[in-house]
Design a protein around this nucleic acid. Structure first.
Length: 909
RNA sequence: GGAUCCUUAGCUCAGUUGGUUCAGAGCAUCUGCCUUACAAGCAGAGGGUCGCUGGUUCGAAUCCAGCAGGGUCCACCA
């Protein structure tokens, strides 16, 4: 089974991502390289944060999933059993809203077709659009185990969700109760506190007179005059001198003439409004609490669509905002209206429908959270679960400290139906119910309560569970019970910090409740992708770039490079995106994105150029002709590159361990290109051009093998970040078997460190740069041979690298001479303690040379000053660590030596 | 109101236990090169009092306090 390597023969002049990306992904898929089953290896498990089943890939997903892919690919190469589980979330309220909208477009009303028919349509929709996003993840290169694709509402998951509910209920963590909840009058469902978005609006504060029984008036202030129809008290602060005598009296609610008590409670802020508060326990959270405390009557005046019901007595059937206007007129007529003043306040709106939330008393299901949270908090604070960055622990703690019971019932159909079955009840009796997995089991339980009951008398609760009450099981529910033992707890969760409370915390709770074990060891929080105006990217703003256009233009590897090189854990990413003008049609938008001009853009381009650079360096390697009879003239270059590779690799590894992924990538990039392989190493070993033969001279075998070997190691190092191009060249660089892949190539591990050669090379590179600078300044051609004279105590470092200094593409030094004295009429520079001269026979600009030397002299004098001051300070010498003091002595000596050298040079000019 | 993070080059940001290679990177800018892998490139250059004010320390971009400005989360708002 599986296809063989789709190797390509011809090597194009330039890098064309589209020519390689698709074919390699198909090859990986065909051979099931991402398949994971339990074995004796250590597992590295990641579960995807399941995107909404009807979602479409956007920048946020790219960020999130690319990071997961990097972690999982690296683990796979390290020989771990890497398992990345993909899947989607049914997203109860969002999906139902979409289906309702679609049906409405067809002229179908949800209420007309009923639950079963509606769900048929919903599943149909899911089959059609669900999973598009997973296909899109494949174009990103995501190395998920696609045989494990899961959906929060498929059979296995659903069963576990229901089992969890029953277990929580039987353990006493779930209760049903009449509570003040957030009611969305448009969706006609409750929403959780987290789904309420507060928006600042311009509203008005109305002052209204209530008549006090026994004489006088009390003036209250309210932003919601329509709710006075449900008032059952007036409240003042008992310490308020103005009103405290009123406590115990009664007042008359205008228009409905209800006599209500005047109560005292410190809750009332004496400085706000008039210091008198009307109390409507049915329609305000705080009033509800006051009502409970003072045993007030609760009068609910709203229907489920926020029109007034019969309890309101007047304006029955009208909408709350219509009534607000009319009530004000009524009050004016009745002479109770005092004033209205402009006022800014925040109004809760539904995250999904945008409707203004109405606090409403209703029967709902709740999970008691306090107790369940205990292990969830403890195991984060004690680092049993590690947050990256750790600063999110604070936010997490404050969430848990302020946690309230979780309203888990939703008045929707798309979701997991609550497994509660009601027994028939007479009017006025409290409802009786049983909680069970099936109607049959419910019947058995119900018989205990009522021996005469018939199975058809049982009615299942109409509501479904909050989506998060299924996704909190995700790290558990995606595995079969026996596999769970192997894969759980998972290794790393990568997710946005915006759902730390919605999801992360709840998974931790569920993990400890069900398994008595954490769901994951590490949590890597990503920031939000924002546009240049720092706005979160969102569909409604239309400021998210078309990710497929980006992949087309820059290559998937290029886009991955861009996104990865700008992620620091938890930090937001600004992605410079051009935004089409407001009010653009979809067509105009599409056009706008057709040619992304400026899409951060620069970073994608850098990634694309990097890929091309790799391409070009392979072209160079592959053009070389090997002559096995040649000796190896590049021993120093090889020794150096091995050293720098090991040194940088150790740094990269450190960064990975701390989840500093962008730093790791930047280092790989730099090692491959500007500070390592391409810019220095390849230039050092590149054979000269043979004019007579019209081609490059042959290369010795040792050098060639080394170059190929380290090219391969670099590809391995880069593969987790840029999987496609690295596979392409990994396949080309050596003969591979049919089913081989870089996906399982060994991830490089740091070898022995050799700081000596690294330091020496650095010195030589400085010399080369200085010589190049002299060439640039004097207008001397690159290949014109120059002599180098050096006054130094350690000529070895120079002779060691002589061959490199001589190379035309390095410094083109024809001859190195070691001298005792200054060389007159030469351009000079100093590197460390080595004084270098380039004789230029009359090409010297004395004035320019003097300026340069003076500038350097000044700098060294400053250094001398700093060091000598430090060393004169006894406190420094006595207190600082010995190596710091020694180093300071060395710096002082260096500065002194250099000053001497520079002064002599100046004198000799 | 509570919490929390941030302020470093023109822009976007690193800077890990206070000390060496600490004042960095990329982009942008400037100069010179179409040199047989690569102009999607090569070789060079300039650019910052690390928000401000104090403090701790032998020593501060780094620790502490205050101030100014910005972000984010939470709560309240009758």
């Amino acid at each position: 089974m599986g296809s063989s390597n789709p190797k390509t023969g011809e090597l194009a002049d330039k890098y064309e991502p589209s020519a390689i990306e698709g074919k390699w992904y198909q090859y990986w898929l065909d051979n099931k390289f991402f398949r994971s089953t339990p074995d004796e290896r250590e597992p590295y498990t990641v579960v995807i944060p399941p995107p909404n089943v009807t979602g479409v890939l956007h920048m946020g997903h790219i960020l999130n999933n690319t990071i997961q892919d990097v972690l999982i690919r690296k683990a796979r190469m390290e020989g771990k059993n890497a398992c990345w589980v993909p899947g989607t979330d049914h997203a109860s309220i969002a999906t139902e809203a979409k289906v309702v909208k679609m049906l409405r477009a067809q002229g179908i009303k949800k209420s007309d077709i009923g639950r079963e028919k509606f769900l048929e349509h919903a599943w149909e929709w899911k089959e059609k659009y669900g999973g598009i996003i997973l296909k899109q993840l494949q174009t990103l290169g995501a190395s998920c185990d696609w045989d494990r694709e899961a959906f929060t509402m498929d059979a296995e998951r659903s069963e576990q969700v229901i089992d969890m509910f029953i277990k929580l209920y039987n353990d006493g963590h779930i209760y049903r109760g009449l509570r003040m909840v957030n009611w969305d009058p448009e969706g006609k469902t409750t929403v959780s506190n987290e789904e309420v978005i507060y928006k600042e609006v311009d509203s008005k504060l109305y002052y209204i007179n209530y008549r006090v029984v026994g004489g006088g008036y009390v003036t209250i202030a309210t932003t919601r005059p329509e709710t006075l129809l449900g008032d059952t008290a007036v409240c003042v602060n008992p310490e308020d001198e103005r009103y405290k005598d009123l406590i115990g009296k009664t007042a008359i609610v205008p228009l409905v003439n209800r006599e209500v008590p005047i109560i005292g409670d410190k809750y009332v802020d004496t400085t706000f409004g008039t210091g008198c508060l009307k109390v409507t326990p049915a329609h305000d959270m705080n009033d509800y609490d006051l009502g409970k405390k003072h045993n007030l009557e609760v009068i609910d005046i709203f229907n489920e669509d926020a029109t007034l019901n019969a309890n309101a007595q007047i304006h029955i059937g009208k909408d709350r905002f219509v009534v607000r206007k009319e009530i004000i007129n009524d009050l004016k007529k009745a002479g109770c209206f005092i004033a209205e003043i402009p006022y800014k306040n925040k109004v809760g709106t539904s995250e999904r429908t945008g409707a203004i939330i109405e606090p409403r008393l209703s029967e709902q299901w709740f999970i008691a959270m306090k107790k369940l949270c205990e292990p969830a908090l403890e195991n984060v604070l004690n680092k049993n679960i590690e947050f990256h960055p750790a600063s999110f622990e604070n936010m997490y703690k404050s969430w848990i400290d302020n946690i309230q019971d979780w309203n888990i019932s939703r008045q929707l159909w798309w979701g997991h139906r609550i497994p509660a079955y009601y027994l028939p009840t007479k009017e006025g009796e409290e409802k009786q119910f049983v909680v069970a997995k099936s109607l049959e089991e419910a019947f058995e339980l119900a018989k205990a309560k009522d021996a005469n009951i018939k199975i058809e008398d049982l009615k299942q609760d109409e509501d479904v569970l909050d989506t998060w009450a299924s996704s909190w099981l995700w790290p558990i529910s995606v595995f079969d019970p026996e596999e769970l033992e192997y894969y759980y707890p998972t290794t790393t969760l990568v997710t946005g910090f915006d759902i730390i409370f919605f999801w992360v915390m709840r998974m931790i709770i569920a993990g400890y409740f069900l398994k008595d074990e954490k769901p994951f060891k590490h949590v890597y929080f990503t920031g939000m992708v924002r546009d240049q105006q720092r706005r979160k990217m969102s569909k409604s703003l239309g400021n998210s770039p078309d990710v497929f256009k980006l992949m087309d233009r820059y290559g998937t590897d290029g886009l991955r490079y861009a996104i990865l090189s700008s992620v620091a854990a938890g930090n937001d990413i600004m992605f410079d995106t051009p935004v089409p003008p407001d009010g653009s049609t979809d067509e105009q938008r599409a056009k706008f994105y057709e040619i992304p001009k400026n899409l951060d853009s620069k970073l994608c381009e850098t990634g694309q150029k990097f890929a091309n650079k790799i391409w070009q360096s392979y072209r160079l390697l592959s053009s070389w002709e090997v002559d096995e009879s040649l000796p190896n003239p590049n021993k120093v270059a090889l020794e150096w590159f091995e050293a720098i590779f090991n040194q940088e690799l150790a740094k990269i590894e450190r960064n990975f361990n701390e989840f500093r992924i962008s730093d790791a990538l930047t280092q790989v990039y730099s090692l491959f290109w500007h500070n390592g392989y391409c810019s220095w190493f390849l230039e050092m070993i590149k054979p000269d051009y043979d004019q007579a033969a019209g081609k490059a001279k042959p290369i010795d075998k040792a050098t060639y093998d080394f170059a190929i070997d380290y090219f391969e190691r670099l590809l391995n190092l880069l593969h987790p970040f840029m999987p496609f191009i690295t596979e392409e060249f990994w396949q080309r660089i050596k003969a591979r078997d049919e089913k081989e892949t870089i996906c399982f190539a060994p991830y490089p591990t740091p070898g022995e460190q050799n700081p000596q050669i690294v330091a020496e090379a650095e010195m030589i590179f400085e010399v080369i740069t200085s010589i190049r600078e002299i060439r640039t300044k004097k207008g001397i051609k690159k290949h014109d041979p120059l002599k180098l004279a050096v006054k130094t105590d350690s000529p070895d470092s120079f002779t060691k690298f002589a061959q490199i200094l001589q190379k035309q593409n390095m410094a083109a030094i024809s001859e190195i001479e070691f001298v005792e004295d200054k060389v007159a009429g030469a351009a000079s520079f100093v590197v460390r303690n080595h004084e270098c001269f380039i004789p230029l026979e009359g090409k010297i600009d004395v004035e320019q040379e003097r300026k340069k030397l003076e500038k350097e002299l000044e700098r060294q004098k400053r250094n001398l000053n700093t060091s000598s001051n430090k060393l004169k300070n006894d406190k420094f010498v006595n207190n600082a660590k010995p190596e710091i003091v020694n180093n300071e002595r060395k710096k002082l000596a260096d500065a002194e030596a250099q000053i001497k050298v520079l002064e002599e040079s100046l004198a000799s000019l």
